[in-house]
Design a protein around this nucleic acid. Structure first.
Lengths: 138, 138
DNA sequence: AATCACGATACTTATGATGTTACATGATTC
DNA sequence: GAATCATGTAACATCATAAGTATCGTGATT
């Protein structure tokens, strides 16, 4: 989805679900499903009818990678975690406390890192890469 | 599994797969499947026949939570990550670099934290909790 | 010899993510 | 205003993975 957003930023005029789906090697309906989150968050806008499609609707400076991640679906960052958490067992409580403590710290770091990068910054990094490539070609 | 290991540490004599399964609300075969990793890593030992079962086979000081995690199966820590990683698309490469950078740092922190805690420490923490509880009762 | 417990395999659910089809609705074009 | 285009939504199919289950073999104890 980040991929799509950056492409949209470099593309004037809306992009259709079908075009995006081709780009991602997937299906227009799947695209609409996942883009719905971004639309509800106000990051993109969708227009129906002729010449319709998806377009950026927010200031890219104000949208971080973390924002996109949250809008697109997953508060679930880690593949591990204490699922049952039987509070009857004192051993289990000890274990969970230790694991969750480390997990919380790592998540905080990741959230900070993702929250610190805006889409606009990413776009600038990309433009920089292009400029370097052009230079090499010249 | 951490739960099981600490229980085993406080239990003299081997525990059967069935007893462990009851403890975890699961199935003996599932227990054997996941314990196989711990056995291959040398953290536990399994004995067949009458009076057999599972027992600790290593110094708990030398086994970290990270060791257990790795032995038990998952090198997969994060629920997110760049899966297709189409190297043809320059936009995608930019995005992946940014995300994976943050991901790598968070994973490093988590690995460091989990690697710093040994099962023995955890057992001591647990004993401490028990002592406190006894004190309150007295 | 009987019993107990693990080891291993194969098979069956259960779950979630993804893909697919179909139809309704709104917007544009002619 | 009819045709067309594109999204919105619902319902269903498919796929992959994890978990549960059944069964048999093997070694160890009694």
């Amino acid at each position: 989805m980040l991929h799509v957003l950056l492409h949209m930023a470099r593309h004037d005029g809306p992009m259709t679900s079908e075009a995006i789906a081709r780009m991602l090697g997937t299906n227009p309906v799947v695209v609409r499903r996942t883009m719905a989150g971004l639309r509800d968050a106000g990051y993109v806008r969708s227009e129906k009818g002729h010449g319709g499609g998806w377009a950026i609707a927010a200031d890219l400076e104000a949208v971080s990678l973390l924002d996109v991640h949250r809008a697109v679906g997953g508060p679930r960052i880690f593949a591990i975690g204490s699922e049952h958490s039987n509070p009857d067992c004192a051993v289990e409580k000890t274990v969970n406390a230790a694991v969750e403590d480390a997990l919380r710290d790592a998540e905080a770091l990741l959230v900070a890192r993702l929250g610190a990068v805006s889409l606009a910054e990413l776009a600038r990094v990309f433009e920089g890469h292009c400029a370097q490539a052009d230079e090499r070609r010249a």
